[in-house]
Simulated assay, not measured.
Amino acid sequence: MAFLEIDNVCKSFGPVDVLKNISLDVEEGGFLVLVGPSGCGKSTLLNTIAGLEGLTTGEIRIDGDVIDDLPPAERNIAMVFQSYALYPNMNVGQNIAFGLEMRGMPKAERDAKVQEVAKTLQIEALLERRPGQLSGGQRQRVAMGRALVRNPKLFLFDEPLSNLDAKLRVDMRTEIKRMHQTFGTTIVYVTHDQIEAMTLGTKIAVLKGGIVQQYGTPAEIYNNPSNLFVADFMGSPAMNLIPVEIDGSWVRLTRDGDDPLVLDFDQLPASVGNMSGKQVIMGIRPEAITDSQGGAATRASSHRTVTAKCRIDVVEPAGADIFAITALGGKEVVTRLHQDWVGQAGQNHDLVFNLDKVVFFDAQSGERLR
């Protein structure tokens, strides 16, 4: 039995359906990330778990117990907000201990727990400071410490890093990951940042319009997107989505001023092969289109590959990689090349296509063809 069970949850505000039959489950110690664009319903779902919003229909269970009718204070849940929500008139130690004090815990026991959490989060030197004297990252650590010290059944994070600068977001992602590994806590985490979702979650639920588009591990979401929305939303750079023509086992990609690029798959799934003459979208990640040096490992792994000359329109060095843009099927296609690749924009270069990494979608419905 799952530790957190969200069973056919619906939430409406008047005539507007914000959550539509959402069913998810999280194992104990799991890290579920709810990700999607603004307005997709992810924060509303988090608020229903916390008890800040009631359900229209459905049921939520924690450790087998239905919590729908429990007030927030009785759900044994800790929530970390985007705004930190620290008391400005209290120092860090008092902020962390406040919830324990309200529950009547003796002072000596409170102080010991505060010291333990502060040591884990490396904020021992900050215990006497007030929130106004802290940086954004330090305030977020304090907010996490206040949640951790209560030892709740479930932690909820509502876009906790969105107020931080880029480098600090990366640092805090590491801290949250370390906290999860150290304490074995069960976490539900809301973000619109798909990089946070991929790096933090043991499971990811991608939402759009109040509907779960796909639920799975980060690898499943990334490598096997269930529809065009998930394919385009998850990944940076995003998956290349290219209109193609199907002819038996051949896939044709048009090129301006040149012959079409033909990829021979030997055998395509029946659902794809049956799409001859219909609109099909081919999805391929940038790292699955690389140069001959980067493609050597791909070929050595016995993957199906095709090498073709393509005109490189733009070259974008990015340190460990080089991103190059070519045009296929009337779309700009991003490729990921080896850092030592030498080439120039405006010239033709060999590119290696890893056919084992290609997925196909119905252009009309947007659904994956399997």
Rank of each mutant, 00 (worst) to 15 (best):
G343Y: 05
V314I: 15
I176Q: 03
L161V: 01
I60E: 00
N151Y: 11
Y222W: 08
R150P: 04
K208V: 11
S43C: 06
Q347R: 12
V188D: 01
V272A: 03
Q82R: 02
M172P: 10
E367V: 15
A231T: 02
I211G: 07
D232S: 14
I325W: 11
V66N: 07
G343V: 06
G210C: 06
A50L: 06
L207I: 13
D256N: 09
T307F: 08
V142W: 05
N91L: 08
G64W: 05
L241I: 15
P260Y: 04
A318Y: 13
G366H: 03
V66A: 13
H349R: 10
N227P: 05
Q364W: 09
P15R: 09
K11I: 05
E245T: 13
H192D: 08
L126G: 01
R370V: 15
G137F: 11
A231Q: 00
G209R: 03
G283I: 06
N274P: 09
Q94T: 10
Q94N: 10
M144H: 04
D63C: 05
E109M: 07
Q339T: 15
N76A: 12
V244H: 01
F183H: 11
Q344V: 15
R129T: 09
D158G: 01
M144Y: 04
V33R: 00
D259F: 05
F265G: 03
E245A: 12
A50N: 02
V142D: 06
F13Y: 15
I221N: 03
A219H: 12
G39D: 03
V190Q: 01
L263W: 01
L328C: 01
T56L: 05
D266S: 13
A297K: 14
G248V: 09
L337Q: 00
D165G: 04
V359A: 11
F81Q: 02
A78F: 07
G39P: 01
V80G: 00
E27T: 11
G366Y: 05
Q122D: 15
N240D: 10
E59F: 07
L70Y: 11
L328I: 02
M79H: 06
D264V: 10
W341G: 00
K153M: 14
T182D: 12
R311Y: 09
D232E: 15
N223Y: 12
A238P: 08
L24Q: 04
V149H: 01
C40G: 03
Y87V: 12
L24I: 14
W341K: 01
N76M: 08
V142S: 07
L337I: 05
G136R: 05
A324G: 10
P218A: 03
N223G: 13
I204W: 02
V262N: 07
D291M: 03
L134Q: 12
F98H: 04
D193N: 12
A300T: 14
V272H: 02
G41K: 00
L253C: 12
D111H: 08
D340N: 14
L70M: 11
Q140D: 14
T307N: 09
A270H: 08
T298E: 03
E287L: 04
T217R: 04
F3C: 07
